[in-house]
Design a protein around this nucleic acid. Structure first.
Lengths: 246, 246
DNA sequence: TATTTAATGTGTAAATTAAACACATTATTG
DNA sequence: CAATAATGTGTTTAATTTACACATTAAATA
C-alpha cells in the first residue's frame, strides 16, 4: 500500500506516518514490489499502468506495486500482485532490478524490487475492473510517477535483451499467430524494422514453430498461415537464441 | 550486522531479537547487501569470503554483507561495505539480484541485494587485517553459509555473461598485463579453454589494447609483451563485445 | 467478372564472423 | 650450447548474417 496506487488518501497518510516513524526510530526500511506488465495488442507493445492517487503525483501514471508481506517470499509477492491486478497466475515473471535511493518515494524509505511480466492481451482478456488501470503504448510512456520512469526504462531494456536470448515473445501472442504477428511483436519490442525473409528464415531454422495448416480469418488481404509455438521442444534445448545487435 | 560476518556473538543476538520483534509486530523486513568480490591471482579466479560466526553455520564461509542504513542509498551501501572490507573505492560495482525467501536467514526476515565487484588482487593489495577473510579459488566454493551458495552461483553466471558483453575483465588485471594473463583470466571466468591465436586476433581487432613496448620481467620462459587497456577509447564506443556461446 | 491492391511466400549471392589448425622465434634453464 | 617452454604469427574453411526481387494469393473495387 505504500506505493499508494489503490489506496485511499486516508490509508496513504497512515502509511506515511508509519514509515516516517520507522525511519526515525529504527534501522528499518520498507520493501515493495513493482510489476511491469507488458502486453501486445494492435501490433503495439503496451504496458499496464495505474493512475497514481498520491497528491504529489496527481494525474501521473505509475506501475502496479505493493508492499511485501513479512512472511511472504519476494517472488511470491510479485505473483500475488500480478494476480491481484490482472487475475493471471500462469505467466512468465522475472525479477529485473532493485531500486533503493533514499528519496525515491515521498512516503518514506521504500526500497522496491521490479518484476517484469509478459501477458497476452488478446488471449487472457484480463478483467480491468478498476478504470484507473489502462494499457499504454510504450511509445507514450514518458512521465511516470515516483522513479517509475527509470524502472520502466530498465525493464524495457532488459526485455529487449532477454527477447534476443529466449523466446519470451510467444507469451505475448495469442496461441495461434501468423509470422507477421510475430515479426510485428519483435519490431515493437526492439523498436526496429526487420527484413521479412531473414526473419522468417531465422524462426523456421530454430524449428520451434508448428504449422497449424490454418489461415488467418477476416484479414483485409491475403491471409497468412497460422502457427503455434512448440514450448516442449524449446524447453528441451534452451540455449542462446537469436542475436540482433542493437 | 545481521548477516553477522564481522560482529561479536553478543551483537548478533541483539540483532536477532530486534528482527524477530519486527517480524512479529509490524510490516517490516530487514534489508541487507551482500558483496561478491571477485579477484584474479595466480591465473585463478577468486572470491573473497569471510568465516561465518553464527553458530548455525560454524566453520562455513559466507559473503561480505551488512545491513543497509535507513538513510543510505542502496548502491551507496554496497560501496560502503566494499570499502569497509577492502579499503577500495574506485572499482566497478554492479547490482546483480535480490534474494528474498522468507527463511533464508536464521536471524529473521532479511532480504538481501547482491552486488558484484571485480578487484585487482595484485594491484590493490587490499588490507586483510581480519584473518577470517580469505581469497578462495572459485572452484573450491561449494558450501557457503545461508543461501550464499545460490547468491554466489548467480553472480558467477552473471559475470560470465557480462564479461562477454563488456571488458570488465580488465578491472581484475594489473595495469600492465600480457596477453597470456588476459587469456588466463577469460579461461578462468568462463571455465573453458580458448584458442590462443583466435583469442589474440579478437582482442587486437577490438583495438582497445595499447602496446607498452615493455616485456614481462622475471618469468621462467620467453617474456611476453605488456599491454594496457584503453579505457577512454572503450567508453567512447560501448557496444556488444565478444560473444562466445556457452 | 476482370482489375487493382496489398499483403504473403520464397532463394541466392555476398559479406562478415567464427573456428580450426602448425611452425618459427625467443629467452631461460641446465 | 643444447633442451625447454613459452610467445608470436596467417590462412583456410565453415557458419552466420545481411542484402535484395519477384511470383502468388485473396480481398476489394471498378
Amino acid at each position: 500500500m505504500i506505493t499508494g496506487q489503490k489506496t485511499t488518501p486516508t490509508k496513504n497518510i497512515k502509511t506515511l506516518q508509519v514509515i516516517q516513524s520507522e525511519v526515525e526510530n529504527s534501522n528499518r526500511i520498507a520493501l515493495s514490489v513493482d510489476c511491469i506488465i507488458f502486453g501486445f495488442d494492435e501490433a503495439k507493445l503496451k504496458v499496464l499502468l495505474i493512475r497514481s492517487d498520491l497528491k504529489k503525483y496527481a494525474g501521473k501514471w505509475s506501475l502496479l506495486g505493493d508492499l511485501v508481506f513479512p512472511n511472504e517470499d519476494l517472488d511470491a509477492a510479485a505473483y500475488r500482485i500480478l494476480k491481484q491486478r490482472t487475475g493471471l497466475s500462469d505467466v512468465y515473471l522475472e525479477q529485473v532490478s532493485t531500486f533503493g535511493t533514499v528519496n525515491r518515494h515521498p512516503a518514506g524509505r521504500v526500497v522496491t524490487v521490479a518484476y517484469c511480466s509478459l501477458i497476452n492481451v488478446q488471449h487472457h482478456k484480463l478483467n480491468i475492473l478498476d478504470n484507473e488501470l489502462h494499457w499504454h503504448d510504450i511509445k507514450n510512456v514518458t512521465d511516470l510517477a515516483f522513479d517509475h520512469q527509470q524502472i520502466f526504462d530498465t525493464c524495457l531494456q532488459q526485455l529487449q535483451k532477454r527477447v534476443q536470448e529466449h523466446p519470451l515473445g510467444f507469451n505475448l501472442l495469442p496461441k495461434k499467430f501468423s509470422l507477421r504477428d510475430l515479426q510485428n511483436l519483435y519490431e515493437a519490442i526492439l523498436g526496429i524494422k526487420m527484413d521479412r525473409r531473414n526473419f522468417r528464415k531465422k524462426f523456421f531454422s530454430m524449428d520451434f514453430l508448428i504449422d497449424l495448416n490454418e489461415m488467418e480469418q477476416d484479414v483485409p488481404h491475403r491471409p497468412g498461415k497460422l502457427y503455434k509455438f512448440n514450448f516442449e521442444k524449446y524447453e528441451k534445448r534452451k540455449k542462446k537464441w537469436i542475436g540482433i545487435d542493437f
